[in-house]
Design a protein around this nucleic acid. Structure first.
Lengths: 227, 227
DNA sequence: ACCGTTTCGTTTGTAATCCAACCGATTTGT
DNA sequence: ACAAATCGGTTGGATTACAAACGAAACGGT
């Protein structure tokens, strides 16, 4: 099998597993490396899946078609990201989205059962893999829960402040940088970029915070804001 | 220890583990049962946590305080639900919410390390517990991803149709029941109940769907809707 | 059958967002 | 240095959601 270590070693799934063990592990797991042409469909929505997918090269799209035939992009998967891991680990069986290669791509398929089942040779990496898998799912949970908390707010201003407050808490101070530009932040909070800019300007004018590009500084402490 | 089997056996965490193994398992895991008075704080946000919490009796609130001192309810936890499981399984260490008993409550704390570490007596339920834990996290992922997809839509109508389309797909037909009343559905989609009712009426009048109480029937197949 | 409660649909005025367009500032490539 | 592209802020009109209130229907208990 082609040496996929360089393009997948940074996956959290393989954290703590060195180059020496790598090939043995893939053998033990019976991992398959598959290649796909541009626009080739890897899974159709509703297909039965039992393997975790790991993007090795290229770029994949997860798309969903509703009952009226409208198709929408759910996510883009680039190396070394996983896909279908929640469906497989949750024993759902059927994948709710279609997976399409948007470029010439390679995917490593890993049988979930062989991850959680100790093999006869008692490989050392099984428990490490399992802990990594749990960690991946748990962190994804936390990230989604955080995002959900922002998005469920009613107004653009509330969504923005919810996000900024969380960033301030995470970064441990009132001054911090965010990893988004305006458009990306608007997409993340699912609001309009223009409305977001407008709210930011108002908050700056109101003395609630200051910012320049991606650097923010929260100014008001404990007091009723002028909403 | 008090027999907590009746109130926790239905937890997915213990799926496939019988009454006979139950007490042995709790011993092996070193599980602690703690009692709390009404309004007692179990965790303060920022506390270091290493144990998964399982609500045994009572009712817990997960609350979040932002940097301005505003406090908001994130979730309510009732038996036999888990809490702090994502933080612990993700090795985050610090819990981002405070946990408060809103009634006299009991909580079973389970050390995560002892779940994923095989014990000296090679208990049979470790691998089962681990698989259950993975399944719980994965299913929560899927549920949150589905909800996110609805909520990120712009208008109430789009959110509603996104939800109904998914229900139709899940139930495998154009006619199905939903597990929410109007207010609950509005909360789930984070929209106004009145706006939701109005949109539903319009969709019924437009021949897109029919409904009575919690029973829905999608009528239009593939065609451009009159948006 | 009666009454209180809950649920659902509807309406109306107010507030907020969306959308499109525009402009200035900054960055990038040549 | 120049042109093109990107990014961020602003504006105005159309659209949509919000909040509150009301009545009708359904439900449950007595």
């Amino acid at each position: 099998m082609k040496n996929i270590f360089p393009s997948t070693k940074s996956s959290p799934l393989f954290a703590g597993i060195g180059n020496d063990d790598f090939d043995n592990m893939l053998d033990c797991l019976g991992a398959r490396l598959c290649a796909y042409a541009k626009d080739e469909t890897i899974y159709f929505a509703g297909d039965t899946v039992a393997e975790i997918g790991l993007a090795v090269s290229g770029r994949l799209h997860l798309v969903k078609d509703d009952i009226w035939g409208n198709t929408s992009l759910v996510a883009e998967v680039t190396p070394p990201e996983l896909f279908a891991e929640a469906v497989v680990c949750g024993n759902l069986g059927k994948i709710p989205v279609s997976v399409i290669a948007k470029e010439e791509s390679e995917v490593l398929f890993i049988d979930y059962k062989r991850v959680v089942t100790s093999c006869s040779s008692a490989c050392v990496f099984h428990s490490k893999l399992i802990r990594n898998m749990i960690s991946i799912l748990a962190l994804k949970n936390i990230m989604m829960a955080a995002k959900m908390e922002h998005i469920t707010k009613r107004t653009t201003k509330e969504k923005l402040l919810s996000y900024l407050a969380e960033q301030a808490r995470q970064k441990g101070g009132k001054a911090f940088d965010i990893p988004f530009n305006r458009q990306e932040l608007a997409d993340y909070l699912s609001v309009e970029r223009s409305a977001l800019s407008a709210e930011m300007s108002k908050l700056k004018a109101g003395g609630v915070m200051d910012y320049r590009k991606n650097h923010f500084e929260m100014l008001i402490e404990t007091s009723e804001r002028t909403d």
